[in-house]
Design a protein around this nucleic acid. Structure first.
Lengths: 242, 242
DNA sequence: TATAAAGTATCCCGTAGCGGTAGGGTCAAC
DNA sequence: GTTGACCCTACCGCTACGGGATACTTTATA
C-alpha cells in the first residue's frame, strides 16, 4: 500500500510517515522506481508497535533503539507495554482523584495541602522509559557481559586483539578498506559466538554509542573507538544488505 | 515563596516556571528589587489549573487564552476538566483493549482487521481542545453577538464609527498617541455596555486575533484591523495596570 | 488518448515547550 | 567576609513533526 492508505489506516499523517522514514524508524518495505514508498502489512504491524511505545511517551530515538535491538521480541514488548499502560492509567486515576478533591475543596467540604494539589502529575524522569530500558537495554548489556565472562582464554585474547587493532585505526574513514576489513573480522568473530544478521549487527553498533556502559568499556581501548565502530558497523551492515 | 519552593511543591521545573512567566501564562504575584520571583498561594492554584489543562493536551497558548478570558470561571473549569479527564481515561482504555487484543492475536486466539489495530490512538484533531473551545471561546463570541443584537440604533452607529476610525489609522504604531486615544474610546465604550478590567480588555483583544469569527468580523472594516487592535489594546491594558 | 485531478516526492523553514549552560548577582550563615 | 545555596537573564539546542513550494507520477474521466 502507498503512504495515504497507510496513513488512513493507522491515523497518523503522511508527513509523519515521511518523518519516520527519514529518521529510519519505519522504512517502507519497498520503493518504486518513481520513488514511491510501498508499505507492507509487516510495516503496519511495526507502526502499531511504534505507536504503543509512543503512547508511553518514549522518544522516537529510544523506540528506534529498542526495536533495532537484536534481542527485541514482539511478544515481550507487547506484554510490557500492556503493563506500562496500566500504570499510566493508574496515574491518570490519581489526577482524576486530585481534581475531584479540588472540586470538593472549592465547595468547602474538605481541605487539601499544597502538596496534595499536585499528586498525579508526571514530570521530569519518565518512569516508562526507565522500565523499557531495563527490559531491553540492560538485557543486551547483561548478555554481552555474560558472554565475556564465559570466554575462554583464547577468545579473550582474540577479542582484545580485534579491539586493539580497531583502536589503532580509529582515525581513518569508516568507509575505508582497512576499517571495513577489520569490521569484517569483528562481524565474523561475533557470528562464531552468537548469531548476528547485518541488521542486528547495526543495532549492536548503535548501542555502542547509545548505552554508556558499552561506550565506556569500548573506549578503554581508545577514546572515540565506540563511535568509530558504530560508524564502520553501519557502513558494513548497509553494504552487507545489498 | 520563591521559584524553588514553588517548583518542588508542584513538581514542575524552575525552568518551566521561568518559561510560563516569559510567555505570560503564570506571572508571579510579586517581584523583589533584585528581580526574584515571589509566588503566592493564588499563583499555586493557578498553576494547578494550568496543569489540569495541560493534562488534557491543550497548548499553552490556548490555556492562556482560556484563563485570560473575561468569563473564565474556576468552578466550571474544574468540572469540565474532570469530565474531559474521564474521556481521556476511556480513550486510554481503548488503547489497552487494543493491545490486549493484539496479544491474543499473536497467540492465534483471534483475528484483527487492520483498522482495529489502531483504535484508541489519538492524532491530529484534539477532542479536548474542541470541548474547551466550545466551553469558553464560543461563550465569549456568543455573548458578544448577543450584545451586538441588543444594541440600539445609537449604539450601532457609535460602534461602527469607532471601528471605522480605528481602521483608518491602523497603519500607525500601536503605541502612538493617536492609536491609544482611539483605543481609550473603545475601552470606555465597552465599559458602558459591560464591565471590563484592563486584564479582561487584553483578553478580549487576544481573542480578536485568535478566534477567526472575531477576526473576520473586525477585518471587514479593514484588513489587519483585528491585529492592530490587539496590539494597541495590549499596550493600553499594560499602561492602565500601572 | 489526451488532459485534468489526485497522489507523491523532496527540500526547507517554522513552531512548541522547555533543557541546559554560561555569566553574573544575592542572601543567609558561620 | 567569605562560602555555598539560590536567584537572575540571555541564548542556543532539541524533538516531532506541520505546512508550503515546486516538480514529477499515476489514475480517472472526457
Amino acid at each position: 500500500m502507498k503512504v495515504k492508505e497507510m496513513a488512513e489506516l493507522s491515523g497518523v499523517s503522511v508527513r509523519t510517515l515521511h518523518h519516520y522514514n527519514d529518521i529510519g524508524l519505519l522504512v517502507p518495505e519497498e520503493v518504486t522506481e518513481a520513488g514511491y514508498r510501498i508499505y507492507s502489512d509487516k510495516n503496519l504491524e511495526v507502526l502499531q508497535q511504534i505507536l504503543f511505545f509512543k503512547e508511553l511517551g518514549l522518544p522516537l530515538e529510544k523506540i528506534k533503539e529498542i526495536m533495532h535491538n537484536p534481542s527485541f521480541d514482539r511478544r515481550e514488548a507487547l506484554l510490557m507495554q500492556r503493563d506500562t499502560l496500566y500504570s499510566k492509567r493508574e496515574r491518570l486515576d490519581e489526577v482524576i482523584r486530585t481534581i475531584e478533591k479540588t472540586i470538593q475543596e472549592l465547595k468547602g467540604e474538605i481541605q487539601m495541602s499544597n502538596r496534595e494539589k499536585f499528586t498525579g502529575f508526571d514530570f521530569g524522569h519518565n518512569p516508562y522509559e526507565e522500565e523499557a530500558r531495563e527490559r531491553w537495554g540492560d538485557q543486551v548489556v547483561d548478555e554481552s557481559e555474560e558472554k565475556v565472562k564465559k570466554m575462554t582464554g583464547y577468545d579473550q585474547e582474540k577479542f582484545n586483539e580485534i579491539f586493539r587493532e580497531l583502536a589503532l585505526i580509529r582515525g581513518v574513514s569508516p568507509e575505508s578498506e582497512i576499517a571495513q576489513e577489520k569490521i569484517d573480522i569483528w562481524y565474523h568473530y561475533l557470528n562464531e559466538v552468537g548469531n548476528y544478521s547485518p541488521h542486528a549487527f547495526e543495532g549492536l553498533g548503535h548501542m555502542y554509542v547509545n548505552d554508556e556502559r558499552f561506550t565506556e568499556n569500548i573506549d578503554q581501548f581508545g577514546e572515540g573507538l565506540a563511535e568509530f565502530m558504530y560508524n564502520a558497523m553501519s557502513v558494513y551492515a548497509e553494504r552487507k544488505k545489498n
